[in-house]
Design a protein around this nucleic acid. Structure first.
Length: 423
DNA sequence: TTTGACCTGGGAACCAATGT
DNA sequence: ACATTGGTTCCCAGGTCAAA
């Protein structure tokens, strides 16, 4: 049918009748389905219009099922009236959700779900997968390693992959699990990731006036030269060392500290506004710091993906987006095209510290999530990662300072491209 | 009931890099 | 030289809900 992708890369699940046969088996639905089947691409526009009219006239009360069938009919119409254009994928089936299991999942819909999961991964977990040879297929064909140790997650690429694989499996919908190792799933997931990055990149730059800190004219972000001129030091440019610092970044700190401060890092309004933009649209960014950012009526990412609390990857993603947004980089690539910042490695570095802080139950890490949740999800009861609000004891503060010192004084190696951050 | 605002995913066109 | 693949950007149709 309409979804016949000319690309060989999307064969769809092998089975012609995927699991989840429709249980809405009334004659009404069967009739509609027969109408759909009549819509061969050779039908004339008029015939299609008649069929569509019949469809519209006979449906009022079958909700999602009908909507779904209409979508497919529209697909067929489009295909029939424009035989020369590229084959198109089905429209997104927006009403899907975890609780909805009554609609038959066709190959196209499974593919759509996989693509959506790829989008979700970019929003909540990470911007890129750590792949060997850019091979998504191999990534998805791998099995979770029983020996994997979360504490060593960032020791090697293999460990990073294992960590990411677990994140993927965490958010992969149940009905996709049987197809986890299929090539089409890897391809669709990749499509989703790429698409989400591209859209976010374009939309953040377009809507940047919602994001720039108060008092800064949005025009300063408009051109590459202007961004370099006005924001280079704010995103960590070190004039003396002639490099971009990884941690001494004012735009990461709530108080714009130019040196690393774990009690302030990842708290800059820009980060929270960016996350608000991504999950509920640019207009919602305005009230974030006043706690008045509300969920808009539209079907935003927060609704689609049931996002109810802040996740570590979301904070890190926002940090990366923030640095890129005010940088001289034009495209959003793993390594900046102007700054040469390695965003992918930096993402891992930031995530490492947050996860480590959580694992050690350090106060700064927990408070960080309380901070984010209180601004972005004020109505949510307590913080998932923050473990609820904690009292501010002197000993806690002393302990965290000790831990921070200890972390900073750990030995470093200097054979990497990036010099050591801390001397 | 219609309109409008706000937001999304994806088609289409395009460009660049890579394969053959 | 041509084909394929990967990625970006522009634009549009569609969902939702409040206001008219």
């Amino acid at each position: 049918m309409s979804q016949s992708l000319s690309h060989s890369r999307s064969p769809g699940p092998d089975s012609p009748s995927p699991p989840g046969t429709p249980d809405t088996s009334c004659d009404h639905i069967a009739h509609l389905k027969s109408l759909i089947l009549l819509c061969a691409p050779r039908k004339s526009g008029r015939e299609l219009a008649e069929l569509r009219a019949k469809l519209s006239a006979s449906v009022d009360d079958e909700g999602r099922v009908v909507q779904h069938l209409k979508h497919r009919l529209i697909d067929v119409e489009n295909e029939a009236s424009n035989p020369n254009k590229r084959s198109r994928r089905s429209r997104n089936h927006r009403t899907e959700g975890i609780e909805e299991q009554t609609v038959e999942l066709t190959a196209t819909e499974l593919e759509t779900r996989a693509r959506q999961t790829g989008r979700k991964f970019v929003i909540l977990c990470g911007l890129w997968l750590c792949l060997a040879d850019d091979d998504y297929d191999a990534f998805f064909k791998a099995d979770p390693d029983d020996e994997y140790d979360a504490e060593l997650r960032f020791n090697s690429d293999d460990d990073i992959r294992q960590g990411q694989l677990r994140e993927v499996l965490d958010i992969l919908p149940d009905d996709l699990m049987p197809f986890r190792k299929r090539t089409w799933l890897a391809q669709a997931f990749k499509d989703g990731m790429n698409s989400q990055r591209s859209h976010t990149r374009t939309r953040l730059r377009k809507d940047v006036h919602h994001i720039v800190p108060e008092g800064i004219p949005a025009a300063r972000v408009a051109t590459q030269q202007s961004r370099i001129q006005h924001f280079r030091s704010l995103i960590g440019w070190d004039e003396e060392k002639n490099r971009y610092s990884i941690w001494n970044v004012p735009f990461l700190h709530g108080n714009e500290s130019a040196t690393l401060d774990f009690d302030e890092v990842f708290r800059h309004p820009v980060l929270l506004k960016i996350f608000a933009c991504i999950i509920r649209g640019s207009a919602s960014a305005d009230g974030v710091m006043r706690g008045t950012s509300r969920l808009p009526r539209a079907n935003v990412m927060q609704r689609i993906h049931h996002i109810e609390y802040t996740m570590p990857g979301a904070i890190v993603d926002s940090a990366i987006w923030a640095i890129w947004l005010f940088s001289g980089d034009e495209d959003f690539l793993p390594t900046g095209d102007f700054t040469a910042i390695n965003y992918r490695d930096r993402h891992d570095e930031y995530l490492d510290k947050i996860l480590e802080g959580l694992r050690r139950q350090q106060k700064w890490a927990r408070d960080l999530f309380v901070f984010w949740d209180s601004h972005l999800f004020p109505s949510t009861n307590g913080s998932h990662y923050g473990g609820g609000v904690q009292q501010d004891h002197e000993e806690d503060r002393g302990e965290i300072e000790d831990a921070t010192d200890a972390m900073l004084n750990m030995p470093t190696v200097s054979d990497a491209e990036d010099e050591d951050e801390v001397d």
